[in-house]
C-alpha cells in the first residue's frame, strides 16, 4: 500500500502561510497588500494590526513600504509580478533599491502563470527589471518547499529581495536538499550538455528533456536549477557547466534580460561551451491557455529543450530559438 501523495501547494500559498506564521513571531514584519485576495480570510492573530491593504495603487504601495523599512520595519509587499516589475519599477528603483531597504517583494503570477488572463497579467520581463537593480536579490523558487527554504534565508538578508511566485499549484520538484541562496542546484548529473533552468515548469521540463535525450539520443544531460538570479556567482555557473560541450538555458521569461542573458554574460568572458538561450521570443503570448499550454505553445517543452540541446551540441541542426506564435 502506498502512502497518499499530498497535492502540491502553489508557491504563493506556501509563501502566504509562511508569512502569516512569521508575522506572529517577528514583530518587525508588516504585510502590505494591494487587494490581491491572497490573504482573504487569513487569521493573523495578534499580528492583525500589521496587515494593511493599501488598495490598487502600486506606486504608493512600494513608497509606503520604503517609508516603513526606513523606520526599521520589515515589509513584505504583495502584488503581481507584472505590476511590481513595471508599474512600480521606479518606486522600487529609487525608494527601495537606492536606499538598500529591506523590503521583500512577493510577486505572484510570475512568467505565464496568469495563463488565460493574458499578456497584461503575464510577467516575462520581471527578472530582467529586478536583476538590473543594484542591491536586489532575485529569487525564483521551484516549488513550495523551495519557497519556504528561500524565504527562511532571505528574511534577514540585507537589502531588498524579489521573490517570483506562481499562481496555481505546479508539481513539486523531485526531493533534494534545501536550496541555498546564490548556489545553483544540480538536479541531475550528466556530462555532455548542461540544462540550466529557472522556475518550476522550466525545471520540470528540463528534467523531462534530459530523459528524452538519454533515451532517444544517448546524450547525457546535466540539469541545474538556478533559483537565485541575483547574485549569480560566476564561479558557480562555471562549475555547473564544467565539462559540458553545450549549455541550454530554459526560463519562463522573455529571452532578453533573464537567466539566459545572465549566463551569457558570465560565459562570454571565458572559453567554454556553446550556449543556446530558451525563453519566450520577442512576442506577447496573447492566447487562451493554461500556463502549461502557453509554455507548450512557445516551445518550452521537454521535446523543445531536447531539440535545443541537440542543436547546441551539433550546430546546424534546427533551432528552436525563433518559435513564432
Amino acid at each position: 500500500m502506498t502512502a497518499p501523495v499530498a497535492a502540491p501547494v502553489a508557491t504563493r500559498h506556501a509563501y502566504r502561510d509562511w508569512l502569516i506564521a512569521r508575522m506572529r513571531d517577528d514583530p518587525r514584519v508588516i504585510c502590505l497588500d494591494s487587494d490581491t485576495g491572497l490573504f482573504t480570510g487569513a487569521d493573523f492573530g495578534p499580528a492583525a494590526d500589521r496587515y494593511l491593504d493599501l488598495g490598487i495603487a502600486e506606486q504608493n504601495l512600494f513608497g509606503v513600504a520604503a517609508g516603513l523599512a526606513h523606520d526599521g520595519w520589515l515589509p513584505y509587499v504583495n502584488t503581481m509580478a507584472a505590476f511590481a516589475a513595471c508599474r512600480a519599477a521606479e518606486t522600487v528603483k529609487i525608494d527601495i533599491a537606492y536606499n538598500r531597504l529591506p523590503v521583500r517583494i512577493a510577486a505572484t503570477h510570475g512568467g505565464l502563470a496568469a495563463g488565460h488572463l493574458g499578456p497584461t497579467h503575464h510577467a516575462l520581463e520581471d527578472l530582467a527589471v529586478m536583476r538590473a537593480m543594484p542591491a536586489m536579490t532575485v529569487l525564483v523558487p521551484g516549488d513550495a518547499a523551495d519557497t519556504v527554504a528561500l524565504l527562511d534565508q532571505a528574511h534577514d538578508r540585507d537589502g531588498p529581495v524579489y521573490l517570483r511566485l506562481g499562481r496555481k499549484p505546479t508539481p513539486d520538484l523531485p526531493p533534494a536538499p534545501p536550496p541555498r541562496i546564490g548556489v545553483p542546484r544540480v538536479r541531475r548529473d550528466g556530462t555532455e550538455v548542461c540544462l540550466l533552468a529557472c522556475g518550476p515548469l522550466p525545471t520540470l521540463r528540463a528534467l523531462a528533456a534530459a530523459e528524452v535525450l538519454a533515451a532517444a539520443d544517448g546524450v547525457s544531460a546535466r540539469v541545474v536549477q538556478v533559483h537565485t538570479l541575483k547574485p549569480l556567482d560566476g564561479a558557480a555557473i562555471a562549475g555547473a557547466v564544467r565539462g559540458c560541450a553545450a549549455v541550454v538555458t530554459v526560463e519562463e521569461h522573455w529571452r532578453e534580460g533573464g537567466l539566459g542573458s545572465a549566463v551569457a554574460a558570465l560565459l562570454a568572458s571565458r572559453p567554454g561551451p556553446r550556449l543556446v538561450r530558451m525563453g519566450v521570443g520577442d512576442m506577447y503570448v496573447s492566447a487562451v491557455g493554461s500556463q502549461e499550454e502557453l509554455l507548450d505553445a512557445v516551445g518550452i517543452t521537454a521535446a523543445g529543450i531536447a531539440r535545443a540541446a541537440r542543436s547546441a551540441l551539433r550546430p546546424g541542426l534546427d533551432s528552436p530559438l525563433f518559435a513564432t506564435f
Binding site: 506606486q59 504601495l61 517609508g67 525608494d95 537606492y98
Partner: peptide, 24 residues
C-alpha cells in the same frame, strides 16, 4: 536628508509609510 528625492511623485508615499510607522 531623510531619503533621496528628485523624481516627482514619490515623497507622499514615503511620508505615509513613516507616518504609519509612528502610529504602529
Amino acid at each position: 536628508v531623510e531619503l533621496p528625492t528628485g523624481s516627482l511623485g514619490h515623497g507622499l508615499a514615503l511620508g505615509l509609510g513613516l507616518a504609519l510607522s509612528a502610529r504602529m
